[in-house]
Protein backbone atom coordinates (compact mmCIF):
# COMPACT_ATOMS: atom_id res chain seq x y z
CA UNK A 1 0.00 0.00 0.00
CA UNK A 2 1.47 3.21 -1.06
CA UNK A 3 0.98 5.93 1.39
CA UNK A 4 1.31 9.42 0.19
CA UNK A 5 1.18 12.05 2.84
CA UNK A 6 0.01 15.42 2.00
CA UNK A 7 0.38 18.15 4.56
CA UNK A 8 -2.45 20.55 4.65
CA UNK A 9 -0.27 23.46 3.74
CA UNK A 10 0.69 21.53 0.66
CA UNK A 11 -2.90 20.92 -0.14
CA UNK A 12 -2.72 23.93 -2.33
CA UNK A 13 0.89 23.44 -3.28
CA UNK A 14 1.35 21.22 -6.26
CA UNK A 15 3.92 20.80 -8.93
CA UNK A 16 3.58 22.96 -11.94
CA UNK A 17 2.11 20.39 -14.19
CA UNK A 18 0.44 21.54 -17.28
CA UNK A 19 -2.25 19.02 -17.82
CA UNK A 20 -1.90 17.92 -21.38
CA UNK A 21 -4.50 17.15 -23.96
CA UNK A 22 -4.73 13.59 -22.62
CA UNK A 23 -5.92 14.91 -19.24
CA UNK A 24 -9.43 14.78 -20.61
CA UNK A 25 -9.33 11.05 -20.00
CA UNK A 26 -7.77 11.22 -16.55
CA UNK A 27 -9.63 9.68 -13.68
CA UNK A 28 -10.13 11.52 -10.45
CA UNK A 29 -7.58 9.35 -8.77
CA UNK A 30 -5.02 10.02 -11.47
CA UNK A 31 -5.53 13.75 -11.22
CA UNK A 32 -4.95 13.82 -7.49
CA UNK A 33 -2.10 11.36 -7.72
CA UNK A 34 -0.41 13.27 -10.53
CA UNK A 35 -0.86 16.44 -8.60
CA UNK A 36 0.94 14.94 -5.65
CA UNK A 37 3.59 13.11 -7.59
CA UNK A 38 4.48 16.22 -9.50
CA UNK A 39 4.57 18.15 -6.35
CA UNK A 40 8.00 19.21 -5.26
CA UNK A 41 7.68 17.94 -1.78
CA UNK A 42 9.64 19.66 0.98
CA UNK A 43 9.72 17.60 4.16
CA UNK A 44 10.95 20.43 6.38
CA UNK A 45 8.86 23.53 6.60
CA UNK A 46 8.74 26.36 9.04
CA UNK A 47 6.03 28.98 8.86
CA UNK A 48 5.19 32.05 10.78
CA UNK A 49 1.46 32.57 10.53
CA UNK A 50 -1.15 35.03 11.56
CA UNK A 51 -4.38 33.31 12.44
CA UNK A 52 -7.42 35.56 12.30
CA UNK A 53 -10.70 34.29 13.76
CA UNK A 54 -13.76 36.15 12.51
CA UNK A 55 -17.23 35.85 13.96
CA UNK A 56 -20.53 36.62 12.27
CA UNK A 57 -20.41 40.22 13.48
CA UNK A 58 -17.04 40.77 11.89
CA UNK A 59 -15.14 40.81 15.17
CA UNK A 60 -11.60 39.53 14.76
CA UNK A 61 -9.29 37.75 17.13
CA UNK A 62 -5.72 37.74 15.95
CA UNK A 63 -3.17 35.14 16.93
CA UNK A 64 0.44 34.76 15.93
CA UNK A 65 1.53 31.20 15.44
CA UNK A 66 4.71 29.42 14.54
CA UNK A 67 4.35 26.18 12.73
CA UNK A 68 7.09 23.59 12.49
CA UNK A 69 6.58 20.50 10.36
CA UNK A 70 8.80 17.70 9.19
CA UNK A 71 8.48 14.32 7.57
CA UNK A 72 11.06 11.90 8.77
CA UNK A 73 12.54 9.08 6.80
CA UNK A 74 10.52 6.48 8.69
CA UNK A 75 7.33 8.08 7.36
CA UNK A 76 6.40 9.80 10.60
CA UNK A 77 4.91 13.20 10.12
CA UNK A 78 5.23 15.68 12.94
CA UNK A 79 4.18 19.19 13.43
CA UNK A 80 4.17 21.70 16.21
CA UNK A 81 2.11 24.81 16.52
CA UNK A 82 3.32 27.41 19.00
CA UNK A 83 1.15 30.39 19.84
CA UNK A 84 3.06 33.62 20.37
CA UNK A 85 0.27 36.15 20.53
CA UNK A 86 -1.88 37.18 22.36
CA UNK A 87 0.37 37.44 25.35
CA UNK A 88 -1.95 35.35 27.56
CA UNK A 89 -1.58 32.32 25.31
CA UNK A 90 2.04 32.81 24.41
CA UNK A 91 3.79 29.47 24.59
CA UNK A 92 0.66 27.33 24.19
CA UNK A 93 1.67 24.52 21.90
CA UNK A 94 0.18 21.63 20.05
CA UNK A 95 2.31 18.68 19.10
CA UNK A 96 0.95 16.13 16.66
CA UNK A 97 2.61 12.99 15.45
CA UNK A 98 1.32 10.62 12.84
CA UNK A 99 3.08 7.42 12.17
CA UNK A 100 2.74 5.43 8.96
CA UNK A 101 0.77 2.77 10.83
CA UNK A 102 -1.88 5.34 11.54
CA UNK A 103 -0.96 5.76 15.16
CA UNK A 104 -1.57 9.40 15.83
CA UNK A 105 -0.94 11.31 19.01
CA UNK A 106 -1.49 14.87 19.93
CA UNK A 107 -0.41 16.70 23.03
CA UNK A 108 -1.11 20.16 24.29
CA UNK A 109 1.11 22.28 26.39
CA UNK A 110 -0.46 25.04 28.45
CA UNK A 111 2.33 27.03 30.14
CA UNK A 112 -0.04 28.42 32.77
CA UNK A 113 -1.24 24.95 33.72
CA UNK A 114 2.22 23.68 34.62
CA UNK A 115 5.16 21.84 33.19
CA UNK A 116 3.36 18.92 31.69
CA UNK A 117 1.86 17.91 28.44
CA UNK A 118 -1.81 17.15 28.26
CA UNK A 119 -2.72 14.31 26.02
CA UNK A 120 -5.51 15.12 23.67
CA UNK A 121 -7.96 12.47 22.58
CA UNK A 122 -6.59 11.72 19.14
CA UNK A 123 -9.55 9.59 18.14
CA UNK A 124 -11.59 12.68 17.59
CA UNK A 125 -9.72 14.14 14.68
CA UNK A 126 -12.80 15.89 13.38
CA UNK A 127 -12.98 18.20 16.40
CA UNK A 128 -12.11 21.84 16.03
CA UNK A 129 -8.75 22.70 17.43
CA UNK A 130 -7.57 25.67 19.45
CA UNK A 131 -10.71 27.67 18.81
CA UNK A 132 -10.17 27.80 15.07
CA UNK A 133 -12.42 26.49 12.30
CA UNK A 134 -9.86 23.92 11.25
CA UNK A 135 -10.21 20.45 12.61
CA UNK A 136 -7.24 18.33 13.46
CA UNK A 137 -8.08 16.22 10.43
CA UNK A 138 -7.87 19.24 8.20
CA UNK A 139 -4.38 20.12 9.27
CA UNK A 140 -3.15 16.57 9.36
CA UNK A 141 -1.65 14.51 6.57
CA UNK A 142 -4.15 12.65 4.56
CA UNK A 143 -4.00 9.18 3.13
CA UNK A 144 -5.31 9.36 -0.38
CA UNK A 145 -5.98 5.65 -0.45
CA UNK A 146 -8.69 6.22 2.11
CA UNK A 147 -10.75 8.01 -0.49
CA UNK A 148 -12.32 7.42 -3.78
CA UNK A 149 -11.80 10.41 -6.05
CA UNK A 150 -14.53 10.83 -8.62
CA UNK A 151 -13.94 13.20 -11.42
CA UNK A 152 -16.79 15.54 -12.13
CA UNK A 153 -17.49 17.82 -15.03
CA UNK A 154 -14.63 20.28 -15.58
CA UNK A 155 -15.30 23.81 -14.65
CA UNK A 156 -14.23 27.14 -16.04
CA UNK A 157 -14.19 30.16 -13.82
CA UNK A 158 -13.20 33.47 -15.37
CA UNK A 159 -11.70 31.59 -18.32
CA UNK A 160 -9.51 29.47 -16.02
CA UNK A 161 -10.22 25.74 -16.41
CA UNK A 162 -10.53 23.58 -13.30
CA UNK A 163 -10.74 19.91 -12.51
CA UNK A 164 -13.54 19.04 -10.20
CA UNK A 165 -13.17 16.00 -7.99
CA UNK A 166 -15.35 14.47 -5.36
CA UNK A 167 -13.51 12.72 -2.56
CA UNK A 168 -15.60 10.04 -0.89
CA UNK A 169 -14.41 8.14 2.20
CA UNK A 170 -14.02 4.50 1.42
CA UNK A 171 -15.78 3.34 4.54
CA UNK A 172 -18.02 4.57 7.34
CA UNK A 173 -15.23 4.62 9.89
CA UNK A 174 -13.18 7.03 7.83
CA UNK A 175 -16.24 9.19 7.28
CA UNK A 176 -16.98 9.12 11.00
CA UNK A 177 -13.46 10.17 11.90
CA UNK A 178 -13.41 12.85 9.26
CA UNK A 179 -16.69 14.34 10.38
CA UNK A 180 -17.94 14.86 6.86
CA UNK A 181 -19.49 12.70 4.17
CA UNK A 182 -17.66 14.00 1.14
CA UNK A 183 -15.49 16.76 -0.22
CA UNK A 184 -15.50 18.52 -3.50
CA UNK A 185 -12.05 19.59 -4.67
CA UNK A 186 -11.30 22.21 -7.26
CA UNK A 187 -7.88 22.07 -8.91
CA UNK A 188 -6.53 24.47 -11.46
CA UNK A 189 -5.78 22.61 -14.66
CA UNK A 190 -2.74 24.71 -15.51
CA UNK A 191 -0.76 23.88 -12.38
CA UNK A 192 -2.87 21.26 -10.60
CA UNK A 193 -3.02 23.61 -7.68
CA UNK A 194 -5.92 22.87 -5.34
CA UNK A 195 -7.76 26.14 -4.75
CA UNK A 196 -10.96 25.08 -3.04
CA UNK A 197 -12.31 22.26 -0.89
CA UNK A 198 -16.01 22.07 -0.05
CA UNK A 199 -17.06 19.90 2.88
CA UNK A 200 -20.45 18.23 2.88
CA UNK A 201 -22.16 16.69 5.88
CA UNK A 202 -24.06 13.42 6.02
CA UNK A 203 -27.15 15.14 4.71
CA UNK A 204 -25.26 16.39 1.66
CA UNK A 205 -25.28 19.95 2.93
CA UNK A 206 -22.26 22.16 2.37
CA UNK A 207 -21.09 23.21 5.80
CA UNK A 208 -17.49 24.25 5.36
CA UNK A 209 -15.26 25.64 2.66
CA UNK A 210 -11.49 25.93 2.52
CA UNK A 211 -10.16 28.26 -0.11
CA UNK A 212 -6.63 29.21 -1.07
CA UNK A 213 -5.65 32.75 -1.97
CA UNK A 214 -2.59 34.72 -2.92
CA UNK A 215 -1.07 31.79 -4.80
CA UNK A 216 2.60 32.16 -5.35
CA UNK A 217 5.04 30.19 -7.42
CA UNK A 218 7.96 29.06 -5.31
CA UNK A 219 11.32 27.82 -6.42
CA UNK A 220 10.26 27.01 -9.92
CA UNK A 221 7.48 24.50 -10.33
CA UNK A 222 5.86 24.58 -6.89
CA UNK A 223 3.00 26.85 -5.94
CA UNK A 224 1.92 27.86 -2.49
CA UNK A 225 -0.95 29.87 -1.15
CA UNK A 226 -0.12 32.61 1.30
CA UNK A 227 -3.64 32.76 2.60
CA UNK A 228 -6.05 30.02 3.59
CA UNK A 229 -9.60 30.77 4.47
CA UNK A 230 -11.79 28.23 6.23
CA UNK A 231 -15.45 29.20 6.35
CA UNK A 232 -17.90 27.42 8.62
CA UNK A 233 -21.37 28.05 7.24
CA UNK A 234 -23.14 26.44 10.16
CA UNK A 235 -21.37 28.41 12.85
CA UNK A 236 -21.10 31.54 10.74
CA UNK A 237 -17.46 31.76 11.60
CA UNK A 238 -14.24 32.02 9.59
CA UNK A 239 -10.58 31.41 10.18
CA UNK A 240 -8.01 33.06 7.97
CA UNK A 241 -4.44 31.87 8.08
CA UNK A 242 -1.97 34.24 6.59
CA UNK A 243 1.55 33.02 6.02
CA UNK A 244 3.87 35.79 7.05
CA UNK A 245 7.08 33.87 6.54
CA UNK A 246 7.86 30.45 5.17
CA UNK A 247 11.19 28.68 5.28
CA UNK A 248 11.95 25.35 3.68
CA UNK A 249 14.90 24.16 5.72
CA UNK A 250 15.80 21.25 7.93
CA UNK A 251 17.61 23.73 10.19
CA UNK A 252 14.39 25.47 11.08
CA UNK A 253 12.63 22.31 12.14
CA UNK A 254 15.21 20.31 14.05
CA UNK A 255 14.08 17.06 15.60
CA UNK A 256 14.32 18.37 19.17
CA UNK A 257 11.59 20.91 18.54
CA UNK A 258 9.11 18.03 18.49
CA UNK A 259 9.80 17.11 22.07
CA UNK A 260 8.17 17.91 25.38
CA UNK A 261 11.35 19.43 26.64
CA UNK A 262 11.52 21.99 23.87
CA UNK A 263 7.84 22.84 24.20
CA UNK A 264 8.10 23.31 27.92
CA UNK A 265 11.12 25.50 27.36
CA UNK A 266 8.56 28.05 26.35
CA UNK A 267 10.61 29.63 23.57
CA UNK A 268 9.75 33.16 22.93
CA UNK A 269 9.15 34.78 19.62
CA UNK A 270 12.34 36.78 19.87
CA UNK A 271 14.40 33.65 19.33
CA UNK A 272 12.66 32.74 16.14
CA UNK A 273 12.88 36.29 14.92
CA UNK A 274 16.58 36.07 15.23
CA UNK A 275 16.56 32.85 13.27
CA UNK A 276 14.34 34.35 10.65
CA UNK A 277 16.61 37.31 10.23
CA UNK A 278 19.49 34.95 9.61
CA UNK A 279 17.47 32.61 7.45
CA UNK A 280 17.86 32.14 3.78
CA UNK A 281 14.72 30.39 2.69
CA UNK A 282 12.27 33.30 2.88
CA UNK A 283 9.47 33.49 0.35
Amino acid sequence: MITILLLSAMLIGASEVQAGADSADWSGHKIILTSLQKHQYYPYVFEQQTMILMDQHGHRDVRSVRRFSRLDEDGTARFVLVFDYPEEVSGVSLLVEQQPEQVRSSQIYLPAFGKRLIRSDSSRASQYFMGSDFSLRQIMPEKIEDYHYQRGKDLSIQKTPYFRLTALPLNALIARNDGYAKRELLLRQDNLCMVRVDYFNHRGRLFKRLSAHDLQQINGPMWRANMLLMEDFERHHKTLIKIENRVFSRDYVPRYIFTAKWLMGNHKITQINRLLQQGTGKN
Binding site: L53, D55, E88, V89, V92, A112, G131, H237
Partner: peptide, 14 residues
Protein backbone atom coordinates in the same frame (compact mmCIF):
# COMPACT_ATOMS: atom_id res chain seq x y z
CA UNK B 1 -5.36 35.30 33.78
CA UNK B 2 -3.10 33.26 31.50
CA UNK B 3 -4.70 30.00 32.53
CA UNK B 4 -8.15 31.43 31.87
CA UNK B 5 -7.09 32.45 28.37
CA UNK B 6 -5.42 29.11 27.74
CA UNK B 7 -8.41 27.10 28.95
CA UNK B 8 -10.66 29.04 26.64
CA UNK B 9 -8.66 27.76 23.67
CA UNK B 10 -10.47 24.46 24.13
CA UNK B 11 -13.66 26.09 22.98
CA UNK B 12 -14.69 27.32 19.61
CA UNK B 13 -15.57 30.98 19.63
CA UNK B 14 -19.23 30.22 18.82
Amino acid sequence: RDLVAQYLMFFHRT
